[in-house]
Design a protein around this nucleic acid. Structure first.
Ligand code: ZN
Ligand code: ZN
Ligand code: ZN
Ligand code: ZN
Lengths: 135, 135
DNA sequence: TAACACTATGTAATAATATAACATTTATAA
DNA sequence: TTATAAATGTTATATTATTACATAGTGTTA
């Protein structure tokens, strides 16, 4: 059997897998140095090892960076395999972050043209407000 | 005459004015330590003095933070006196940043509801692509 | 296999971004 | 005036991210 090309595209290296697993099972976005602290028992000892894995995971769309928080969250939106078009809601009290998956929103933004008629191939949108629990 | 209440709302302290002037006349977003370097001759010597002024200027909507770049730009959109709803286009080659002022876009986002029907009172959107010159 | 290119890893040092803590001064308003 | 809030000055420190260089693994192909 071996590993097919498609499988290969999604296979992660050792450090990438360790760090992805941690982010994926976290209920909240994780910061780079929180990740570092939590993977030291697995042999990842230096910031650069974390940042390299994060860069790659962002590049292939397995995780996203929440720019306003300098934190990373696993992608839970099957339609964004490429880290190209992301939208999140962020609670300003409890800091809960949810990836928004709205066909209407992504269609609107993908087709948005600025006043020069320019379209953009990539965007990141962060909504802020209060989540259900914190209202 | 004196200073009216409306004028007062827009008056800036000494450090705030120095830092706003620098950002306002810059053709590109400025980073905090670039600002610090450029205002040292005016007596602002410590990072905290810069960050405090930046915080205030963001709060009152005179400047915005470009989160993906950790940089600050003056507001050129008369309708966003409050730092609540911001949208930018960012060129991935030359890093030119432009504030987007589109009634349609702001209306769409202000009225956007997530799948729970939640609305959010604040957002930041960053579009990425190539500007006219870099295409 | 051997040679090559490419990706990933390990490690140390350092750069860049941002905040904590505390003392003092200035502006505003009752 | 007196109280209050806002802004400033200063030192130290915390947090986030990259540079530089050496080594090891992986996949391809001659
Ligand atoms: Zn996603
Ligand atoms: Zn909440
Ligand atoms: Zn603005
Ligand atoms: Zn450009």
């Amino acid at each position: 059997m071996g590993i097919s090309k498609i499988d290969k595209m999604h296979s992660l290296s050792k450090n990438q897998q360790i760090i992805f697993d941690l982010i994926d099972k976290s209920p909240e976005p994780l910061k780079a140095y929180t990740i570092l602290f939590n993977v030291q028992k697995k042999g990842i000892k230096a910031p650069l090892q974390v940042y390299r894995a994060l860069d790659k995971l962002v590049e292939i769309g397995k995780i996203h960076k929440i720019e306003s928080r300098n934190a990373f969250i696993a992608c839970h939106n099957s339609s964004c395999q490429v880290a190209k078009a992301t939208a999140f809601s962020i609670c300003e009290i409890c800091e809960k972050v949810t990836e928004i998956s709205s066909a209407g929103l992504s269609k609107y933004l993908a087709n948005f043209k600025d006043k020069d008629g320019m379209k953009y191939n990539k965007y990141n949108l962060e909504f802020f407000g209060l989540c259900k629990k914190c209202r």
